[in-house]
Design a protein around this nucleic acid. Structure first.
Lengths: 248, 248
DNA sequence: AGATTATCAATTATCCTACTATTAAGCAAA
DNA sequence: TTTGCTTAATAGTAGGATAATTGATAATCT
């Protein structure tokens, strides 16, 4: 028995912290652990999650950095109020977009943000895009075009809007791309694909790309506003059909 | 001396991690440690910062959560490209607004965001504000009004704009308050106070508050747009005077 | 009795040591 | 030059010990 390996456990030695972050983060985002509630004490929580105390603590620190929880000696670790959460953090966006968690309100709020930012972003892109920026936008559009009606390349759509945001050369707008990515991925899961893959949808994207490439600021703005307006209407009817009763 | 306590070191037992986060975060934000560069190995870095390895690791995890660095065994911990940083994180905003770090470009980008979001936010506030929301907005305005010409209550100004963003009942817009807070604080440090404490500035704020309270969406939008437009012009002239040569 | 102060105990914060798994880099063989 | 193996450097994980903070409780004083 001297050669006994004695560790048949799968016990991955890597990614423990990230796993705990995701587990707790999703539970909190889902409201499973409510604001104001106190988490179990370190030792107990670490044991129940099958990780060492260090891994748990590092996960706790990460969630604290995202504004979801706060710790203090003697008081324990508590879930903070949702208005303190950094909702624009990529992880929080992803967790909230989870099919089991995402609310219509979440999607509508994202849509509102897009309608405020993206038309103006297209205008700025038309003003400031470099040759490389324009090339990326056009390349993304061409990938969208190569798909037939009824099909849809979400990644191409994402790249299209992301490259426009990047072309504004405004770091905050560029960061907003996470919202767009989250929204489009979630929308793709919900919506019937024909919503995104219509000929008119493609035509509008082309109009935007050309306007930016030609430096026509107003046209870029208007076309983007039109695209998002159409999008908004579809979202609202889709969400309304998902839960027809809205009156309380 | 036999009773020497042998711990004359200040060695605070609290806040080590937060201190390391701030130290490294600011260094990275300032470009002192450049993207792609590798940090010293854990042991060495912990020693040079006078903290234990755990505290350092927790700080590293927090900075990773903000997108500033990434770690891997054998490769070390590297500073990521700025486009990966979560610029909307409150800490990153604060670090970048540091007088020794903040660039005119940073302030202009923030101004751009404000001009895109806040007029529309005022419109939404006019549409959705509850009685409590309106009360907070009016209270903040009254505090601004109580100051005489030439003086300025930055906190009241911050509360004014924050309460409007909250009144939109859009969690992403509400989160944008960190940008406004950062901007106003930084602006207050830079600008001569008379820029913010003019009678016309106050009058515009009152117009906004009343429009929201009365539910007049278009008026709220227009007044906010006007306020920010005036702001933008002042910012641009201020920044231009700070560094008159822009040609390369 | 009511208020103030002192004590206690629960909990996180920090530090330390040991061990593991990963992987870049160096080296040898084909 | 390419391929494959070995090695060593590094972050990841674990668990224990101690310190400091602070909410709760008991004790004391007015």
């Amino acid at each position: 028995m001297s050669e006994q390996k004695r560790k048949p456990l799968k016990r991955s030695t890597r990614g423990q912290t990230a796993l705990v972050v995701k587990t707790l983060g999703k539970r909190i985002a889902a409201g499973e652990i409510k604001p104001g509630e106190t988490l179990p004490v370190e030792q107990e929580l670490a044991r129940s999650l099958n990780v060492g105390r260090n891994s748990l603590r590092e996960a706790i620190k990460i969630l604290s950095a995202k504004g979801m929880i706060s710790s203090a000696p003697r008081s324990g670790t508590k879930v903070r109020s949702p208005e303190d959460w950094n909702m624009l953090d990529p992880d929080l966006l992803e967790w909230h977009a989870d099919p089991n968690i995402a609310s219509p309100q979440f999607m509508l709020s994202l849509t509102e943000m897009r309608r405020m930012l993206e038309p103006e972003a297209s205008r700025l892109a038309a003003r400031r895009a470099t040759r490389e920026d324009v090339a990326k936008i056009l390349a993304a559009y061409e990938r969208m075009e190569q798909f037939k009606e009824g099909e849809v390349d979400v990644q191409a759509d994402i790249d299209f809007h992301t490259s426009i945001l990047t072309a504004t050369h405004n770091p905050f707008l560029a960061n907003f791309r996470h919202c767009v990515v989250t929204f489009l991925n979630a929308h793709f899961r919900y919506a019937s694909t024909d919503v995104m893959a219509t000929a008119s949808n493609l035509a509008l994207h082309r109009k935007i790309a050309w306007a930016i490439a030609a430096g026509k600021e107003d046209e870029a703005f208007d076309a983007t506003a039109e695209l998002l307006e159409i999008n908004r209407e579809k979202i609202e009817t889709e969400l309304a059909s998902l839960q027809p009763d809205q009156s309380s």
